[in-house]
Design a protein around this nucleic acid. Structure first.
Lengths: 262, 262
DNA sequence: AAAAAGTCTG
DNA sequence: CAGACTTTTT
């Protein structure tokens, strides 16, 4: 028996909007710790990791650890039927082949329940090693989204270079090239507007903008984003989910001086 | 001679936006009582009935009862040329083959007139019998629109069931099923936000969501909608037009246990 | 890909 | 209030 009650239902809606274009089907893993998901994108290039800790739910009942496979597009469709101020409850019977999403309006006048068939999904559960990162950049998520969108009008890849001066995003394409440099800046009104660069050593890596632009679908989840970089390692783009956990995206860098294999 | 002067011209614009997708050509019937229309939709499944009483017009002259046939898409096009705060006057000479729409800006700075050719339209004028309804649900029109839209992402038809507990909208489709229950609720700030259920006996009927979604195009006309249900009878979905009349839609229920013939 | 809805700005 | 634009939906 599974019964998870989330007062801020809009969080779950935003999570699904953020990942449904990247991953079509995935297993949600539920244990007493929380509700989590780990899945490769359909082209097996990027990895998505979601964690919603149990203490972020108003009510969290999970009798035994289970893995429930869902089609994320269908799940997103159903969640779209919840209002942003609805309370969402996820229910599933052990051994059952369906999950129920219940939406309660704040004043309890309208109660909806949507039932969805579960799927059997093979998933290689990859252990993601905790790594030391050469550089960690924290910046406003909307600014990161704008940079990725702007640069993709010029080129297909972005080189992210972190130095003491700041973080540089550069691209090159048929029509020209572009560089956007963001300096560290902590003297802002609100902490979420800050740009903070923690650098152990300079690092410079190149990524496909197509994937980064997918990741920025998570922008509504958090006003800031953290980008962790180490040479040879996949970048981690993390959106914190207030009081509950995170949505992280992993993407391997392109090897320099190599053409696009797409 | 026909001359109808409507100060709140935006009402007529909204009426045409609401029905032009359902009905292509129709006769408007004008008598000393008012301005009305009754027409089947192009697939002859739904019926539209409009009434604008003469006393809602600033000036209402109709020497003898006439029926003027118009192409509603063309009429809507012309009305779109009126500003929302314009005064609209409809004029037509007896025996003439055209109608004139005159738009006056509130400060009289701009006066437009648009002339449109009339059409000869055969119309079976159906007498709609006043019926007793087993259940009458009044609810916010925007909520009804949202429910119909949400459910149509899951299925093609909706079963509307009224019990003492409230009104239930249910559907079933390939990806799952859904139920939305709205309870009676009169303790709201504004009367138009109330949900009121008058039930003589429980009733449960199934309708094609495609048509209900067309009906909800009338949502801008009124903040609440009234849904009248009786077994075996067409549902009536009514949007009151303040101080003037109503726009009603009639739709026959689907016979239960029958597959979609679409 | 086209249409419709919503949002924003002038 | 309207036009344009963006965003979403079919």
């Amino acid at each position: 028996m599974l019964e998870l009650r989330l007062v801020q239902g809009s969080l779950l809606k935003k999570v699904l909007d953020a990942i449904k274009d990247l991953v079509t089907d995935a297993n949600f893993d539920c244990s007493s710790t929380g509700f989590s998901l780990q899945a490769m994108d359909s082209s097996h290039v990027a990895l998505v990791a979601l964690l919603l800790r149990s203490d972020g739910f108003e009510h969290f009942r999970c009798d035994r650890s289970v893995s429930v496979g869902m089609n994320l597009n269908n799940m997103a469709k159903m969640l779209k039927c919840a209002s942003n101020d609805d309370i969402i409850t996820i229910k599933s019977d052990d051994g059952g082949d369906a999950v129920t999403f219940m939406f309660e309006s704040p004043n309890q006048d309208k109660i909806s329940d949507f039932e969805m068939k579960l799927m059997d999904i093979d998933s290689e559960h990859l252990g993601i090693p905790e790594a030391e990162y050469h550089a960690i950049v924290k910046m406003p998520s909307s600014e990161f989204a704008t940079i990725c969108k702007d640069l993709s009008t010029i080129g297909d890849t972005v080189m992210i270079s972190v130095t003491k001066e700041g973080v540089r995003f550069s691209t090159k394409g048929d029509i020209g090239s572009a560089n956007i440099v963001c300096r560290q800046n902590t003297s802002v009104d609100k902490p979420e507007e800050a740009t903070i660069i923690e650098m152990q050593e300079p690092v410079s890596l190149t990524f496909a903008l197509r994937y980064l632009n997918s990741f920025t679908k998570a922008t509504p989840l958090s006003s800031s984003v953290t980008i962790s970089l180490s040479s040879e390692l996949p970048v981690v783009v993390e959106y914190k989910i207030a009081d509950m956990g995170y949505l992280r995206f992993y993407l391997a860098p392109k090897i320099e001086d190599e053409g696009d294999e797409s």
